[in-house]
Design a protein around this nucleic acid. Structure first.
Lengths: 147, 147
DNA sequence: CCATCTACTTGCAAAACACAAGTAACTTGT
DNA sequence: ACAAGTTACTTGTGTTTTGCAAGTAGATGG
């Protein structure tokens, strides 16, 4: 048995540490689903375009939960379902998602860009970020029981 | 024989397309070396903290060259050495690197941050970006023969 | 000529991944 | 009440990617 090697065990560079958490092919797509695509359930994420496999999705959701980037509650309509959502730390990935999306878009202009992000290409980031954080807060108020 | 599955083959999302190119554990660290750490040779990159293995480095340099994010010339002092540098498209990754570095730094305040990026935490990004692009231009003027 | 240095390539074991097929805990329809 | 889903997973199997060690080819240096 050998343990996986993490950059942060040998590197003091914050970029390397970030890559340990979000530096794979799937993690940021899950964050995107939660942040921009309004997908909050396992089955919703399975149905995203990229076609993540079910074991990988399960694994990434667990890792993201361990890293405190996401959390979950039981679905109010059914105990077998779960609702996933971003923690504050997860939401703080917005600038990363935004810049990578812009970069990808400039590189190969696709026919799609997540609804909230369209404005990024022309307008101000803080404005877009504020709108997105607002929409996430609205979702939380609706779905997370406030004590 | 099956071909590797790329997100962009099935997804119109620019983030997914970007992840096909820079969504692994090593690629952005190589870009960082070229952009911020003044490492322009194979051996320099091997010696970075994270300890990339030689076959992976070779593979990533080839992929990055194919994707037109980096290019190389022969070292003026020795034919057996090469100098790698960022293309304009590679340099355009600055905002991505910057945001991921900031995110990583906030998450776990390390004792190190690449010299040029320190100012990011307090000051303006455009100013820092300008300074970095200037330093890359200086390097190019010194090492790339201008016709 | 012989040692060394640089940028790789090769071989192999270990880990991660994709895909298909379960499974357990519910819920839905009758 | 009970069979037929649904949902969120887990398990199994084969393929791909990675990590590590070793080797190679083409300079270069003494």
């Amino acid at each position: 048995m050998s343990t996986k090697k993490y950059h942060q065990d040998c590197s003091p560079c914050p970029l390397a540490g970030a890559l340990d958490v979000i530096g794979d092919h799937w993690t940021l797509l899950i964050i995107r689903d939660l942040m921009l695509m309004n997908r909050h359930e396992y089955k919703d994420m399975l149905e995203a375009w990229e076609g993540i496999s079910t074991n990988i999705l399960s694994n990434r959701l667990a890792k993201l939960t361990d890293s405190n980037l996401i959390a979950s509650i039981a679905h109010p309509e059914s105990k077998r379902r779960k609702l996933y959502y971003l923690t504050e730390e997860g939401k703080s990935l917005f600038p990363v998602i935004a810049e990578m999306t812009i970069w990808g878009f400039k590189r190969k202009e696709n026919d799609f860009i997540p609804p909230h992000l369209k404005e990024l290409l022309t307008g101000s980031r803080t404005k877009v970020e504020k709108a997105i954080l607002k929409s996430l807060k609205d979702w939380e108020e609706k779905h997370l029981a406030v004590s």
